[in-house]
Every structure is written in structure tokens, then in C-alpha cells.
């Protein structure tokens, strides 16, 4: 085709010059968000999870500050005023010894929440280190450590919980030990699976070629990239630890009286179930609401962290 022919097929005014400002095609308009900014952005969209988060934060603040400023204490008895119904003086009423139930619930929240979060934190650390090393090193080392995990997993939890309680006595430390000794294995398995799938990725190989130490590759690269499911799992561990503590206290091998735990309070209230049923309602609803809220938070995080589960 000659130039004249081209001009006939394509008249000169068929094309227009692109304005200068549209030529900048390398420009990225969207604001850059870090991983956690993005997660928070997604999390905020979930109303139920936001309400739950606010609930738990209020609960934590109340558990910390209420007992400081209250005129009642968890153990002070007022035998002249037992089994009182809720009133302005005693918001949730009093129990059979005349102790203020509201403040006891707050003390119970202290124990429950600290047991829950401490157990989750301990599990997180042990799970990441154990599972991370297994997944990263692999081979015989992995074989031996994972068989230990299997053994721990196969012993009934209640069995060594009772043994621990017998040996260390009924206190917060032994409750924590009893919860942690078995629940980290699930997390360790998960971390191991994540690390194993990540370590063959090219970015991990690239870090190795760059001369990064094994510790750096494992924690800076592999664990950092598997943090999503790990966080979800850890969040869901909090309610299960709270439940275990309440259960142990209820059957009488957890926190011992007169310390107030939601479990012990429910236990004490069960004798009064027919004469003062409200006394049972308070600790049980405290357990229920807390567990629900924490589960909703876990759910919300799960959605926010996993792009596949996001709703548009």
C-alpha cells in the first residue's frame, strides 16, 4: 500500500492526539494500603463483627476499671442482705452471702478474659515456633516433633487437666497450663502446613539466594505471609479457652472459691436455681455474650483476611 492509498482508507482526521495528561500510564491512582490497613478496611464493613469488637473492648475496660472504683469487693459479705433482687445499690442483686453480683461478674471477666487472651498468646508463640520449625526444617526433625504433637493430641484433655489440677492445685496458673498444654497443637499443625506450602514459593528462594538467614526467612517471610489464618485461629482460641476455664470452674476443679469466676458463680447459683433463678442468668449470659462476640470477631477477621470469603 502506498502512502496515498493509506490516506484514502484512513482519512487524516480519523485520529486525534492524546492529551499530554493522559499519557502518564504508569501512574497508580489508588492509594497504597498496607496489609493491616486493608484488613481493617474490610473488617469495618462487617457490622456484627464491629458491634462485637466494641462489646469486648467495653468489657475489657469495665473488667479493669470497675472493681477499682466500686465500693463492693468480690468477697465482702453482707449477710443482712442475701439473695437481693436487682436494685440501684446492687445492679445485678446479691448472692446467698449478700455479695454484689455485678462486681463479681466484673472480677469474673478479669479472670475469664485474661485466661482467654493469655492462653491464646501462649498458644500463638508455641504454635508458630514449633510449627514453623517443623515446616521449615522438615525431614526427620519434622517427623519426630510432629509425632510428639500426635501423642499430645491423642491423650484425652480432661485426663491431664485433672492431673495438673491435682498436682498444682486449683489456681489460675494451673488452669492456664491445662488449657495451653493441649490447644497449641492445632495451631502448630496449621502453621506447619502454611510454612511448608510457602517455603517453595519463589520469594522464599529469592530471600535464600540473597543470603538471608533461616530465622529471617522463616519469620520475616514465611510466617508473615501465613499470618492471616493464624490470626483467625488464635482469635477463635480465646472463646474456647474462656469456655474451658468456665467449665473447669463449674465442675469445681478450676478457679477455687471465693475467687469469682463465671464458672464458679454458675456453680453456686445452681443450688438457688428455683428460689433465685436470676443469679444463674448473670454468669451464664456473661459467658454466652462474650463467647458470641469473640466468635463474631473471629468470623469477621476470617472474612477480612481471606479475599475469597469477602462479600462485595
Amino acid at each position: 500500500m502506498s502512502e496515498a492509498e493509506v490516506k484514502m482508507v484512513l482519512p487524516e482526521n480519523a485520529f486525534e492526539k492524546l492529551p499530554e495528561d493522559e499519557k502518564n500510564n504508569e501512574f497508580i491512582a489508588m492509594k497504597s494500603r498496607s496489609y493491616f490497613q486493608d484488613v481493617w478496611f474490610q473488617y469495618k464493613k462487617n457490622k456484627l463483627a464491629m458491634v462485637s469488637l466494641v462489646f469486648i473492648i467495653i468489657m475489657i475496660l469495665m473488667a479493669i476499671f470497675m472493681p477499682m472504683f466500686s465500693r463492693y469487693s468480690y468477697e465482702a459479705q453482707d449477710l443482712a442482705n442475701p439473695n437481693a433482687l436487682p436494685s440501684a445499690a446492687h445492679w445485678f442483686g446479691t448472692d446467698k452471702f449478700g455479695r454484689d453480683i455485678f462486681i463479681r461478674i466484673m472480677y469474673g471477666a478479669r479472670i475469664s478474659l485474661s485466661v482467654g487472651f493469655a492462653a491464646a498468646a501462649i498458644n500463638l508463640v508455641i504454635g508458630i515456633v514449633w510449627g514453623g520449625m517443623c515446616g521449615y526444617i522438615g525431614g526427620r526433625f519434622d517427623m519426630i516433633l510432629m509425632r510428639i504433637v500426635d501423642i499430645i493430641y491423642s491423650v484425652p484433655t480432661l485426663l491431664y487437666v485433672i492431673l495438673i489440677m491435682l498436682i498444682f492445685g486449683s489456681n489460675m496458673f494451673s488452669v492456664l497450663l491445662a488449657i495451653c498444654i493441649s490447644s497449641w497443637v492445632g495451631l502448630a499443625r496449621q502453621v506447619r502446613a502454611q510454612v511448608m506450602s510457602q517455603k517453595e514459593q519463589e520469594y522464599a528462594l529469592a530471600a535464600k539466594v540473597l543470603g538471608a538467614s533461616d530465622m529471617r526467612i522463616l519469620f520475616r517471610h514465611l510466617v508473615k505471609n501465613s499470618i492471616g489464618p493464624i490470626i483467625v485461629n488464635t482469635t477463635l482460641m480465646v472463646p474456647s479457652a474462656i469456655f474451658t476455664e468456665a467449665f473447669l470452674s463449674f465442675v469445681g476443679i478450676g478457679i477455687s472459691i471465693p475467687m469469682a469466676s463465671w464458672g464458679t458463680m454458675a456453680n453456686e447459683a445452681k443450688n438457688m436455681l428455683f428460689s433465685a433463678p436470676l443469679q444463674m442468668v448473670w454468669p451464664v449470659s456473661a459467658i454466652c455474650l462474650t463467647m458470641l462476640a469473640l466468635n463474631f470477631i473471629g468470623d469477621g477477621l476470617n472474612q477480612a483476611l481471606d479475599p475469597k470469603k469477602r462479600s462485595r
Binding site: 514459593q201 519463589e202 520469594y203 528462594l205 539466594v209 540473597l210 543470603g211 508473615k224 505471609n225
Partner: peptide
């Protein structure tokens, strides 16, 4: 390792997605 470097095949997998 300082003298010998590598460029990888998959530009999507070879950069850590959590790092700037």
C-alpha cells in the same frame, strides 16, 4: 551470595506480597 544473584521466573511469586 553477594556476587551471585538470581532473577526468577514468576514475577507474581518471587516478590513477598507483604513487603513494599
Amino acid at each position: 551470595r553477594k556476587d551471585m544473584q538470581m532473577i526468577f521466573q514468576d514475577p507474581y511469586a518471587s516478590l513477598n506480597p507483604r513487603m513494599t
